[in-house]
Design a protein around this nucleic acid. Structure first.
Lengths: 343, 343
DNA sequence: TTGGGCATTGTAAGCGTTTACATAAAATGT
DNA sequence: ACATTTTATGTAAACGCTTACAATGCCCAA
């Protein structure tokens, strides 16, 4: 701001080059000189201007993070995971919502095109061509979060939605349910699609039919869960269990069940996906799939930092799937589940 | 990155000064020339390097946001409010947790001291001297969120905790309860303290005594709410109603009540503060105080932007209190509350 | 015709760093 | 003692912009 490298140099009686070298521990500087410089810098509380340094080095020490939206603990957890690693590595985090895809292109070009960030963490469950095009030609390292499997020449970290869904549906099957319905997530959303695949495969692998009438659309909102259950349970043939593609919809389903006097799990078992905090408070506690969100963020960040420092090659594809584990509640029909404390 | 202002200038057959002027709509440029430059810039998808521009103009178009931690919808909502305004104003948002005060000093100096951001939004419920010192001598505009009333020569936006607490306690009093307990928030936390003041004043204004035995400590966590209720309800003289200083503690209290077979609101009424999403799902629905969090973020951001552009004077103190409103549930004893839908 | 004013453009000096290269001094080897 | 290497420091260019000031050309009034 006020004091700059020239001033420090003047006061130390050396050139700015020497000051720069001393401060960056870079290049030879006589110990005595270094000490003097360091002391003066400290005295005036001098910090090199990161913008100027950035112009020179093409490094900003900031990481861009683009998320589809900024709501819920879910996205907060991702950010926290990222922030923790950023803090550890002395980096800064620039977050932006893609405002539900509306301005993802702008933000992306701004972040990647013009040196605002050294790297990017991008979560965009629904990718369209334009985005992919930008991603391909941008030179800065980037890691994708929970993106679709197919369009990856990239490095990406994701929750193993398929495995999680498969596991929880198999758990339902283990209970003896034959007619297992599903409230799906939004169309085009990769997470949603993999959870659906997991559901289908689990049924088929266990010689159960995938029945159209037991599958309804949803969009991950409480509301759609509410109406999803309504629809499923107002048919002549009702499912014995329902897999809601996320917990929020399961919450809606609980609400609908309450209104319609449907008992969970006696009349219908319900399971979810995500293990949001709220799911522990439902009664009966929701059986769901735990996804390690914070870890997703921090792992992505750690890898991105390695790409930036060159520790790993940024152009080699890399995919890591974090596996999701079951959390037992009473909503699936289990009676002997560990009555975990809330905290 | 690749193409720069010189290249554009060369291709347009003009000097870089003209290009700069054309692109910034700044200074006179012949219409014909401007068009040509714009067209070439577009053709090569040229975006001025913001770092270089920042070095020259001392503006980075980014806003720093420091929050005590990055958890819960609460902080996510603040960020969302900020992000929305940032998007509208073409600014970028750098967020950081102060990691529970651990590194707030570092982050603060990095953000404010060295031109990384044009302005700062800071939430630090517990301010110590060092922080205040830094704040005082930093030249960049800054707005405080929910900070303590007394240490403000600054501009700050806050939720009117006092008024909200006062209102909800008076509501309890209106129910006829005489013995109203409270589970307090963390010591030194301003929000917590104002809520406590609101509680005390509401009692006294209504000629009710503030009784030590009905007040227990808490720290805003579910756990402390759990034990808070336990303690209050295991005394010989029990409160008829409990004001939990935030919803999370109310949630804990619900849990404890369930375990101890205490009926809400028959055995004890419970009210909270914050209106988190979860509170709507409790049964009975929690009566609480709604705090306009998203609005807090966006208002703060809007004002900060005005300070940056000079539309308002950044050195004049300004305080805005957003008032908090009651949200009726059944937990206070109300029976006729609007049974609002979940969505 | 001359010169003042205006519109347009160019020149060059910043902005605060880093760093390649040059230089000087000191240490080393013969 | 001198050549050679090593170490420490300085000089200046670069990073990619913005902008004060200078320069040019043109128009129009006196």
């Amino acid at each position: 701001m006020d004091i700059n490298i020239h001033e420090i140099a003047r006061r130390a009686g050396v050139s700015i080059a020497t000051v720069s070298r001393a401060l960056n521990n870079n290049g030879a500087v006589r110990e005595e000189t270094r000490q003097k410089i360091l002391q003066i810098a400290q005295e005036f509380n001098y910090k090199p201007n990161p913008i100027a340094r950035g112009l020179s080095t093409r490094q900003t020490d900031t990481i861009g993070v683009i998320l589809p939206e900024l709501v819920d603990e879910f996205f907060m957890d991702i950010i926290r995971g990222i922030d923790e690693e950023a803090y550890r590595a002395n980096r800064y985090v620039m977050v932006s919502s893609s405002h539900n895809q509306r301005n993802i292109v702008e933000t992306l070009t701004e972040f990647m095109g013009s040196g605002r960030v050294d790297g990017l963490i991008l979560m965009a469950p629904e990718m369209h061509k334009e985005v992919i095009r930008i991603l391909h030609k941008s030179k800065r390292p980037m890691v994708l979060l929970n993106s679709c499997k197919d369009l990856d020449h990239a490095v990406s970290f994701r929750i193993n939605n398929y495995q999680g869904a498969f596991a929880i549906v198999e758990h339902l099957i283990g209970h003896g349910y034959k007619n297992i319905g599903m409230i799906r997530g939004p169309e085009g959303n990769c997470d949603a699609e993999e959870r659906y695949r997991g559901y289908c495969d689990a049924l088929q692998r266990n010689n159960l039919p995938v029945q159209r009438c037991f599958i309804v659309a949803g969009d991950f909102t409480t509301k759609s869960g509410y109406y999803g259950l309504m629809r499923l349970m107002s048919q002549p043939e009702k499912p014995e269990a329902i897999f809601a593609a996320n917990d929020m919809m399961a919450v809606g389903a609980y609400e609908a069940a309450k209104n319609a006097n449907i008992n969970i799990p006696k009349d219908v078992a319900i399971v979810g996906f995500d293990d949001i905090f709220l799911s522990r408070l439902l009664s009966p506690r929701l059986t769901t799939v735990h996804v390690p969100i914070v870890e997703l963020g921090s792992k992505a960040m750690r890898y991105l930092l390695k790409m930036i420092t060159g520790e790993v090659d940024a152009n080699t594809a890399y995919v890591e799937e974090l596996s999701a584990g079951l959390v037992m509640g009473g909503s699936c029909g289990c009676t002997n589940y560990a009555n975990q404390t809330l905290f």
